[in-house]
Amino acid sequence: MTAAVVAETTGASPHPEPQEHSPKRKLTGYWLLLPGGLWLIVFFVLPLYSLVATSLYDPDGSVLQGYDMTWAFSNYWHALQDYWSPLVRSLVYGAVATFICLVLGYLLAYAIAFKSGRWKNLMLVLVIAPFFTSFLVRTLSWKLLLRDDGFIVNTLQFLHIVGADGRLLATPVAVIAGLVYNFLPFMVLPLFASIDKIDHRLIEASSDLYSRPAVGFFKVTWPLSLPGVVSGTLLTFIPAVGDYINAQLLGSPKQRMIGNVIQDLFTKANDYPAAGALSVILMLLILVMVLFYVRRAGTEDLL
């Protein structure tokens, strides 16, 4: 709060103003922000600091005996060495799932925004509704659908898309399909918000100016929907990379993602320093990728 008071006195306007209300009004802002802000600082920012500290603890300690702070940067090296493959796998699965979500989500968002007419609201409800039904229960029913002698696998076998003893469960396909399914609404909603704002006359104008539909799409619709594309891909990619539910329920140890590893290190192996180091690595990786991506997409004001 001291910062606020200092800003108050230095930022005073040179004009004779009625001084009785404006400073009070400025302080009100801080009071309103204070409780929620404190909550986020204590339970979001401080834990990140704590996580970094944990990642540098002596790897030979244990939860029961307590850890010593030994600035063991080697934890990071070891974690990368031991778990680089689930880390890379997570990023690849996340990227593929995000791309498929973008294609399906764009189709759906475009259809709702421009083609649904009076059914627009109904279709939006249908997009949001699955989101309110338990994530885990839905993933379990995917497991049921993709089971080895289930309808889907039998059909694919009949069409010789998978081999006679081929399966879907415990394959990357199942895990990615699960990720796509679970995070699709996160893609559709921001896309819809962006596409719905596009003035339809702009598209008509582009076709009036000799653009074929495909050209019109890539020269007008797509660029104008970029803010939605950026926030949609971020909202899909970030949770998809960190997710371990789909890998656990639809995959096998061969499809272990980084989330599985961190979760197991914390709860089963009780190796806090390694788990902490992996979490920090994941956070930094995502931060760097997001910053780079947002910079490239040229929509910094989005944040």
């Binding site: 339970f43 979001f44 401080l46 834990p47 990140l48 704590s50 996580l51 500290a53 944990t54 971020l234 970030i238 949770p239 990379v241 960190g242 997710d243 371990y244 980084i258 989330g259 961190i262 979760q263 914390f266 806090y272 788990a275 902490g276 979490s279 994941l282 956070m283 995502i286 997001v290």
Partner: peptide, 14 residues
């Protein structure tokens, strides 16, 4: 913008 696993593990660390 943070993965849940990171938020969960940092809270646990705290």
């Amino acid at each position: 913008a943070s993965p849940e696993i990171v938020m969960g593990s940092s809270l646990l660390a705290l």
